[in-house]
Design a protein around this nucleic acid. Structure first.
Length: 616
RNA sequence: GGCUCCGUAGCUUAAUGGAUAGAGCAUCUGACUACGGAUCAGAAGGUUAGAGGUUCGAGUCCUCUCGGAGUCACCA
């Protein structure tokens, strides 16, 4: 059993014995003692002061004595301002080190037999992935890894939004202006090519709209429909969607294409398949660069009709109601929400209908006890409604649904906007961070004797380490300001800082190997140094951090832990002699400690999807 | 306007209701003449947006105010 639980229980017994009061072990607060005080762990005794009817210092002293008398691992205690500081015997720490040093799985929980499904990324197929997707993907991926480490069986899925107006725009645009261009004959990555035609479509539409605004038909509509005092410019800005649906030639072509697609028109389907295929091969490359993969893909083209049977059931159960026009609704006003449409008057699905349908087929296929949706917080309301609806329908999985919402990524100049061309492309970003890493590395010249392929791989690992860490270290809920320059920083609180500590350790262990040093000699070591203790305390914390990160779906906890551990290691490395240690035992102990730190850093960063370089 | 989230050093951020709010960047000083300086040490920088309240104890919980974001479509 780990020392914190032991101490908690000892305090429970002390309180019962001294004050005749029952309390729960989990409620006893045991923290790491702050560096300025003597001790390893501190117990907060304030909660017992009142029932003891004594001064805090006296209560702390009494509990301290009782704990020290009954817990062999505690060999001293002191009291400062009502805080009880306990010193743990060295043998506990040396035993602890034994349990870590060769344990590749340290920090993981036993398998719990439960399944979790994590949905993330879920792009549209009309344009390449961008910075926003990267945050989503990194969150989804690292949560998956963390949940796995916490004992769950994780199924990683994404929904490919491969149908609808957006892809039809790219198709129409390509057909009209593409002249048979392909990724092969143009050398342009498939998702970018399709995205280019999407942008072209938007530009052509804009041109068409501007020209149309000069026509008499437009003037008449403006005269008839504008609000009092509304300028022509403001009116037409608002009117754009309506225009696109009622007057635009390009708009008509898109609708026609969409209709043909729904009717299975062979030519349209063929083009759709071709262009989506281009996009998928592009996505594959990006996913590969990011080091992520999925267990199962859901294509919207195959799921967009789902959910209608659930609507029928909902009507029968009285959860839904039908309006005169035939549309179906749910009334959520008693939960502080609105009435929400779940089926259109023409009988077709809306977004939420599909989501009801897919959640059910997922449950039927995998029986996950939890389903996590990694989706930006602009969709909070949608998920609130979705989950509430599924609950009212009595779906068996409704209680295990979780929306992992995260803040949008903004640039220092504000929100990314397609129209203003400020969207940061994922592939560009990957290339950029690798380039910066290479630049920085060549200044140092550490790896110039490596062969080029190996160098490039290292540069990718370091560059991606910087980028990923920069994004993951921020709490998911927070809107994040992405400063491109800072994202490739490699000093301070960064991925490469953590990687560097690993590289240092790696180097030490290589040398230890060459010198054939017996790490077993560490058992003769006594007199643990503060810098060593700091590392042991940090390592000791790791399993709890993994558990917390899984419970809170919060990878930033792992990132911050890794940074703190790396920082403590750098300090240790600087202050304490390892190969020049005062004894063979000290040397072996420090090497074993270093090895453990390296192992845990590697494990933790791996949970974040960050690889460790052997040299840098 | 309703609902939700956010407000911590110049900037980016951390802190299960617990001790003196902890880091990094930027700024200024210093450090191994062999375990790699992508490191370490130090200085300076804070009324945790503001006001009340609960508590032995509040950045954290409650109320109000101010500021910012998102959302409130038979779009996805």
């Amino acid at each position: 059993m780990n020392i914190i639980s032991i101490l908690q229980q000892a305090v429970v017994q002390a309180v019962e014995h001294l004050y005749n009061h029952q309390t729960e072990a989990e409620k006893v607060l045991v923290n790491a003692t702050p560096p300025d005080f003597t001790g390893d762990y501190s117990v907060v005794v304030f909660p017992f002061v009142k029932l003891a009817g004594k001064a805090p210092d006296q209560v702390a002293a009494e509990i301290g004595k009782h704990v020290q008398d009954h817990v062999p691992q505690v060999h001293a205690h002191n009291v400062v301002k009502g805080f009880l500081n306990l010193e743990i015997d060295e043998s506990y720490w040396t035993n602890f080190l034994d349990s870590v040093v060769d344990n590749q799985h340290f920090g993981e929980q036993p398998r719990n037999g439960q399944k979790v499904m994590v949905e993330f990324s879920s792009p549209n197929t009309n344009k390449p992935l961008h910075l926003g997707h990267i945050r989503n993907i990194l969150l989804g991926w690292s949560c998956s890894r963390i949940l796995d480490a916490a004992g769950f069986d994780v199924v990683k899925v994404q929904v490919i939004n491969d149908r609808g107006v957006a892809i039809c725009k790219s198709m129409v645009s390509w057909k009209k202006f593409g002249n048979g261009q392909t990724p092969e004959n143009s050398g342009i990555k498939g998702d970018h090519l399709v995205g280019d035609y999407y942008v072209l479509f938007e530009n052509k539409t804009k041109e068409e709209y501007e020209a149309w605004q000069q026509t008499n038909a437009a003037k008449i509509i403006f005269e008839e429909k504008h609000k009092d005092g509304q300028s022509e410019q403001a009116f037409f800005k608002e009117y754009k969607n309506k225009w696109f649906n009622d007057h635009s030639v390009l708009g008509a072509e898109v609708r026609e294409t969409l209709l043909k697609w729904e009717n299975g028109d062979p030519e349209v389907i063929a083009l759709w398949k071709t262009m989506n295929q281009w996009v998928y091969s592009g996505f594959d490359k990006t996913y590969n660069d990011l080091g992520v993969s999925f267990d199962k893909l859901y294509y919207e083209s195959e799921t967009y009709l789902l959910g209608k049977d659930i609507v029928d059931e909902g009507l029968q159960k009285g959860v839904f109601y039908r309006k005169d026009d035939g549309s179906v609704w749910i009334d959520l006003t008693d939960a502080g929400h609105d009435h929400k449409v779940v089926l259109r008057a023409d009988g077709t699905s809306v977004y939420i209908t599909q989501d009801m349908g897919t959640s059910r087929i997922r449950y039927e296929e995998f029986q996950p006890s939890r389903m996590v949706y990694v989706v930006a917080d602009e969709q909070n309301y949608h998920f609130t409604v979705l989950f509430e609806t599924l609950k009212r329908l009595g779906e068996p999985y409704a209680d295990g649904l979780y929306h992992l919402n995260y803040g949008l990524v903004e640039l220092p100049t504000g929100r990314m906007k397609t129209r203003e061309g400020t969207v940061v492309d994922a592939d560009d970003l990957v290339e950029e961070v690798t380039r910066i890493a290479t630049e920085q590395s060549s200044e140092r010249g550490e790896i110039e004797n490596f062969d080029p392929a190996e160098q490039q791989e290292l540069m990718r690992i370091i560059g991606m380490g910087a980028l990923k860490f920069f994004i993951i270290k921020v709490h998911p809920k927070k809107k994040m300001i992405f400063n491109p320059e800072e994202s490739v920083d490699m000093q301070g609180q960064t991925g490469p800082y953590v990687q560097y500590s690993f590289v240092r350790i790696n180097k030490l262990l290589q040398r230890a190997e060459i010198e054939n040093i017996d790490l077993g000699l560490r058992h003769g070591y006594t007199g643990i140094q503060p810098q060593e203790k700091e590392l042991l305390l940090a390592l000791h914390q790791y399993p709890a951090v993994v558990r917390e990160a899984a419970e809170a779906y919060d990878p930033s906890l792992i990132a911050n832990f890794c940074y703190a551990l790396a920082k403590a290691y750098h300090r240790f490395w600087h202050d304490v002699k390892i190969f020049q240690a005062e004894s063979q035992e000290a040397k072996a102990f420090r090497l074993a400690l270093s090895k453990s730190v390296g192992q845990v850093l590697d494990h933790g960063m791996n949970l974040l999807g960050i690889e460790m370089p052997s040299r840098m």
